[in-house]
Write a protein that binds this DNA or RNA. Structure first.
Length: 803
RNA sequence: GCCGGGGUGGCGAAAUGGGCAAACGCAGCGGACUUAAAAUCCGCCGUCCCGCAAGGGGCUUGUGGGUUCGAUUCCCACCCCCGGCACCA
């Protein structure tokens, strides 16, 4: 049999599908809308790589299956083309992003089309299109008008290489997520979105949304809820007090010093004249250290000369400045308990501060400590709380402080507000006018979009300003409130603002006077299934939940959670390394489109392992998928040449079993085992002299989601009506899908000695009788009496003899 | 360090409300077809031992324990790999 001509067939159906609009969703009229969403890509490199193809194929199979279930599937695609990733690529190529990005997009589109997806190409979105970012700006303004966006001075993460500030979520282990340069800190006026207003809801909704537990855990950890005590110690000789947070109230009698973060406002106020120079020097040095330095270097600090009083025992404790205390967590100050905290222990050792044991490990008296004891135990040297357990003492201490009004229970979070200003060129301009008299003013909505101008010199400046700041035609404007000359905000938005709402736009891309149409949002959202990479567990997935909640509270949408069902696909690696342009290990799908065709590539990628796990890419096994696709072709060609045969009951049963298995596996994204079942069935079909019409129909339908081109061609060749992709998924008969005869293992003392064929559903007496009739069983029993018999129907029999 | 996920043949992997480990595929070996090759088809294919053979027996899911008639699956301890967080008080 000849090899099928994948190039001709794929080109033919691509054209036909485009012409017929088979994948165009009926946005207004769909009876059973199903929003099948994939994370839109950054079109930053020269094209799709094999990892993108892997991800999108899995989403598409899901969409095709849902369509064959009778749903009106909407599967849109777009480009997240603003941002540092795209701009850096433009810088490297030395081509202006306004020229380069449209080329990249065209290339991505072509490669996606060759993949044979059921994407609705009539509703593309690109975040760099003014028709799109006009509404990103609108989203920003709604947040601004409700006080959820504000410009304020704060210590921020600065990447010296990218020359911009970054959100916390974009700092990985103290380094820039894009270029791995150690982050420094700057004190700058920046725009923040108040995601922390939503902390509790972001946390609470995780309890019911249908997401993988692993992703929920990552979000919970990122939000970092922590319960404890907040209290204050009065500062000696000053009208001030020092507020701190602790999760260990039981150790409070062990406080031997206090420590402030170098950036803490009280540092200046409490430092004595004698210590002023030393403290100033230390604070100055600390400001130059990167987060990476801070951790790598030995713990350090300096005494301020001031003292605070522990109100519980009246002890006087020195106040230090130490850079292991973070200004960004809790109150930026700590009570230090060297005996029961590793960091405080090291610090006390270094500076000769007292180490006072107050929690004794249970059943042992505390002696000299060689390291901090961080566990729980029984309180000692703690006044009235002596003898209590850590847990009881914590409660008692907090209650006492609450009674006295000097402290109380408090919940603290790790999550901080989302910093969205970027001192770069390639992004959505922040739609704000800065007026010297009126302050930051929203650009009136009828003046949107604030267009990003073409600026020849788009390189980052390295100052605290975006390159737009020097482009006067953009900067000069008038205040919308007072009409006086004013300047535009020149920072641009973090790309994650673009992607925080894009899914709301897809159904309304043809509407220009509002971001999204209410009726369409009601019809299509929340998204039915969202599938994307784990790398966005915090970042995109958290930000878009926040923005959706905010829009919900403003009354724009009637749901809080944008993606009630989310599934994460695995990541493809190459020889153990992440696939990326910078590593130079890009695998281009075009080579496989040419050599084997998209159907084979899709099938191969989905067959070689679990979709939700990913794995190491290697094309070693692609021949297996190619043979399977070719076998489907050959089977159907043979069927066309020979008269249709009958359908013996065994063949019918194996068909029903396959329909059941494939139909159960696809919704769970177990594509590898679905394909295995199809391979098994085709191996059976091949042994039959001729196929029944129903078998051919069913085969093409079951293979269709995986290999859309060849099945469509064969469907037409065999006179199928309409498109195979618009046909209804075949039903199976549960009775026929069952096995008639089952192999049952016969064990003696847990060791398999024989396997006998029994009718499915055979009861214990008959099964045991059959098993005892086996020569092998008799031989192994060797006359020993059976003490016990265990029977698991249709599975096994275990004869247990006495010892 | 803490939090996730994982470790199964030569390779990619199946199978966990405990029940025949290795489905499906790759590679390999043997055979059919062919002048020959490719393609295709048929058979073998975890490992060790006994046997000329038919066949029989032992071992085997990272390591060591435990529970159980029975453990890849459950429990305890540990090792390694991948991902996330990271001086979070």
């Amino acid at each position: 049999m000849d090899r099928y001509d994948h190039k001709a067939i794929e080109a033919k159906w691509r054209a036909r599908w485009a012409a017929s609009g088979i994948y165009t969703a009926d946005i207004a009229g769909a009876a059973q809308p199903f929003y099948n969403l994939m994370m839109f890509p950054y079109p930053s490199a020269e094209g799709l790589h094999i990892g993108n193809v892997f991800a999108f194929t899995g989403v598409d199979i899901h969409g095709r299956y849902q369509a064959m279930q009778g749903n009106d599937v909407f599967e849109p695609f777009g480009y997240d083309a603003f941002g540092i990733h795209s701009e850096n690529f433009a810088l490297k190529q030395n081509i202006h992003p306004m020229t380069l990005i449209p080329d990249n997009i065209a290339r991505f589109r072509e490669q996606m089309q060759r993949l044979g997806t059921r994407i609705d190409w009539s509703r593309e979105v690109s975040t760099t299109d003014p028709k799109f970012y006009r509404w990103t700006q609108w989203v920003f303004l709604q947040l601004f008008k409700r006080g959820l966006a504000e410009k304020r001075g704060a210590p921020v993460n600065w990447c010296p290489s990218c020359k911009t500030v970054l959100a916390d979520e974009q700092v990985i282990a103290g380094k820039c997520e894009r270029c791995e340069t150690p982050i420094t800190h700057r004190e700058l006026e920046q725009w923040f979105l108040k995601i922390t207003n939503y902390t509790e809801r972001l946390l609470a909704n995780l309890d019911w949304i249908d997401w993988p537990d692993a992703i929920k855990t990552v979000q919970r950890n990122w939000i970092g809820r922590s319960e404890g005590l907040e209290m204050t110690f009065p500062i000696e000789g000053a009208d001030k007090s020092l507020t701190f947070f602790t999760t260990r109230p039981d150790t409070i009698f062990g406080v031997t010093y206090m420590a402030l973060a170098p950036e803490h406002p009280l540092v200046r106020e409490v430092t004595t004249d004698a210590q002023r120079d030393a403290v100033a020097r230390y604070v100055e040095e600390a400001s130059h250290k990167t987060a990476v330095d801070r951790q790598a270097m030995e713990r350090s600090g300096v005494f301020t000369g001031a003292y605070a009083t522990n109100p519980l025992n009246g002890e006087r404790v020195p106040i230090w400045v130490a850079d292991y205390v973070l200004i960004t967590y809790g109150t930026g100050a700590i009570m230090a308990v060297p005996a029961h905290d590793e960091r405080d222990f090291d610090f006390a050792r270094k500076y000769g501060l007292p180490i006072k044991l107050v929690v004794a490990p249970d059943g042992r008296a505390g002696g000299e400590l060689s390291e901090a004891y961080t566990g729980e135990g029984t309180l000692v040297s703690s006044g009235e709380f002596d003898g209590m357990t850590s847990a009881a003492a914590s409660d008692a201490i907090v209650e006492k402080l609450e009674r006295e009004g000097s402290g109380g229970r408090k919940v603290t979070y790790r999550l901080r507000d989302w910093l969205i200003s970027r001192q770069r060129y390639w992004g959505t301009p922040i739609p704000i006018v800065l007026c010297e008299t009126c302050g930051p003013q929203a650009v009136p909505e009828d003046q949107l979009p604030v267009e990003l101008p073409y600026v020849e010199e788009f390189r980052p400046t390295g100052t605290d300003q975006s390159p737009l700041a020097t482009y006067e035609p953009f900067v000069k404007t008038t205040c919308p409130k007072c009409g006086e000359p004013a300047r535009r905000e020149t920072d641009v938005c973090d790309t994650f603002l673009d992607s925080s709402w894009y899914f709301l736009r897809y159904p309304s891309t043809d509407i220009d006077d509002r971001p999204f149409d209410d009726a369409r949002v009601k019809k299509w959202l929340p998204v039915d299934t969202y599938i994307g990479g784990k790398e966005h567990s915090v970042l995109h997935l958290l930000y878009s939940r926040f923005v959706t909640m905010a829009l919900h509270d403003m009354g724009y949408v009637d749901f809080e959670e944008p993606y009630e069902k989310f599934r994460a696909h695995g990541v493809l690696v190459l020889e153990g390394a992440k696939i990326s342009k910078s590593r130079g290990n890009i695998v281009n799908p075009d080579d496989y489109y040419e050599s084997h065709g998209a159907d084979t590539l899709r099938t191969y990628l989905m067959f070689s392992g679990r979709y939700e796990e990913g794995g190491d890419f290697s094309d070693k096994n692609i021949e297996g998928a190619a043979r399977f696709i070719q076998r489907v072709w050959d089977l159907v060609q043979r069927h066309r040449e020979r008269p249709a045969g009958d359908l013996p009951v065994d063949a019918e049963r194996s068909m029903h079993r396959t329909i059941k298995k494939v139909g159960e596996d696809i919704p769970e994204l177990k594509y590898n085992t679905a394909i295995a079942a199809l391979m098994e069935w085709t191996n059976h079909l091949q042994k039959r002299p001729s196929l029944d019409e129903q078998e051919v129909r069913t085969l093409l339908q079951l293979v269709a989601p995986f290999a859309p081109y060849i099945t469509e061609e064969l469907w037409e060749q065999t006179g199928g009506s309409g498109s195979v992709h618009a046909s209804r998924w075949p039903a199976y008969d549960p009775e026929l899908a069952k096995l008639e005869q089952v192999p049952v293992a016969v064990q003696i003392n847990g060791k398999v000695r024989d396997v006998i064929e029994l009718d499915a559903g055979t009861g214990e007496p008959a099964a045991v009788a059959a098993a005892r009739a086996s020569e092998k069983v008799t031989r192994h029993l060797d006359g020993k009496p059976i003490a016990r018999t265990i029977y698991v129907q249709d599975r096994l029999i275990n004869f247990v003899t006495g010892r």
